[in-house]
Amino acid sequence: MVEVSTPTKWALRLVAVGYVFFLVAWPTGLLATRTFEGGVSNLVETLADPDVQSALALTGRVALLAVVINLLFGVTISLLLVRYEFPGKRALSALIDLPLSVSPVVVGLSLVLVYNSRDGWFGPSLSDAGVDVIFHTPGLVMATTFVALPLVIREIVPVLTEIGDDQEQAARSLGANARQTFWRITLPSIKWAVVYGVVLATARSVGEFGAVKVVSNNISGQTQTATLMVEEKYQNFAQDQAYAIAFLLVLVSIACLVIVAVLRPSSEK
């Protein structure tokens, strides 16, 4: 390592700590202070509101579904990308990164274009079949799934590439079929990458706002998720409630980070 003089070292530390403090720690800390300004009563009252409960439950449901879908497709697509050669592989790989680079609002708008029940491509026929997407839970799940799509895949792909297919071939030569090889060899080898991807996807899904905002009609108790409710409460001058819900969302994120921090070292044994 290059030797750095002591003053430079301290200056660098100050910059790093200051940067994180003013951008992250202070605002989040203030959020907690405001939530608990009058003791826990604010939080308790907010949580007692049926609309708040419904919004939190909806966020939980949507996030859970989005994460499960991303988990199943994520593992499958990762295996496809790493273990098989097929035309269009590079294009598929690039397409998977699209949700990271595109604004969530654009994601929401494009989903509306395709699935709205009046003049979307699929919307009217789906609507006739009794499935409403836009302004209903399926639309929220789709939007959330879309924005969190790359997270699981980008965690698994490098691990799969690194472990190679030696162990899988050995399992096959020992009599395991494709399914047994997957459950007994491949999945245990990528376990930690999957867990890490799921945690990241959960954090992202719970916090999603832009894409959800476009596909939801924001009806409290029906299609209003927690993030949407924060915005509404804030704009309606119910700041205390907005802070309380925002604080809960922060708690979820912190829980995710803690899970990752606890899991990571054990994965590197």
């Binding site: 162990q167 050995a170 030569s173 080898s189």
Partner: peptide, 20 residues
């Protein structure tokens, strides 16, 4: 026949041990 039906034992140069 697929490898799992040939009843052969295979030893790889880089061991291919099941790490977990």
């Amino acid at each position: 026949l697929p490898p799992q039906k040939r009843n052969v034992g295979f030893v790889f140069q880089h061991y291919a041990v099941f790490k977990h």
